[in-house]
Amino acid sequence: MRFLDTPFRQALAVLVVAYVLIDFGIPYIPPLFGVDSAPVPNTVVLQYLLTVLAGLLLWVSDNDERWTEFKRPIQEVLVRPDKRVGRAVLLVAVPVLVAFVTWGRVKPEVTAPPSFRSIHPAPPRSITFQGETMQLAGLENPLRSEGSLEAHNEVGKRVYYQNCLPCHGDALDGLGHYAHGFNPAPLNFQDVGTIAQLTESFVFWRVAKGGPGLPREGTPWNSAMPAWENLLTADEIWSVILFLYEQTGNDPRTWEEAGAEEGEH
């Protein structure tokens, strides 16, 4: 590793490795747990890289020797006569890079700009469902303990395909026909970060109340999910929830070891 014998090159190498790890490595982590991979948003990549860069600057400068060593190649390129070519390349490349980045940021695009969303909503302790108060805390799917699971599952399947399909998709992956039109996008149930993280009562709350039922803390956003309590019965919702878990192979969080604090979307 002769190449890595100066602090400057080491720092550069760490930065490159960090970038590769963050931008390409992190997407490989979810599959280890059997979840679909997902890219890291650019804003987060930038934030992480800036943190790493700050750390690197601290490292190269917390010791006098290293700091001098680190600065030497930079100084050399800037002043030494025999590095004229490198200097010229640098003097052209840096402005071009800056210009390119700036252009990339201001060029007209068809996609909407990144949207901010506030903190995830916390579920209420109880809701009113079609006129009855339901305690969400500790609530289990009642269909799991009565009747045949298969029958419920069939009902759930029917309900899903009649109502949920257009947005949440044939594969329950949030890629239905209309999905690309919505922001926030419909939930991908296959993702381990969604229903697998939630209790069934939380899912029930979100299905029953939909976008309009989001608490004010969840703003600003504009989920297009309808409030299904107006269209479905409680049993239909419970059975479609059953179907979601059965079909994706996920297990709901149970109350003994799970918190329903994390939100959806």
Binding site: S126, T128, Q130, G131, E132
Partner: peptide, 22 residues
């Protein structure tokens, strides 16, 4: 008002039904 009414874990719902009385 909607900080609490409408969320339904802090206060009763007003715009929708609560307790079966509409």
């Amino acid at each position: 008002c909607v900080t609490c009414h409408g969320l339904e874990d802090r206060a009763p719902a007003l715009l929708s039904d609560y307790g079966g009385a509409g």
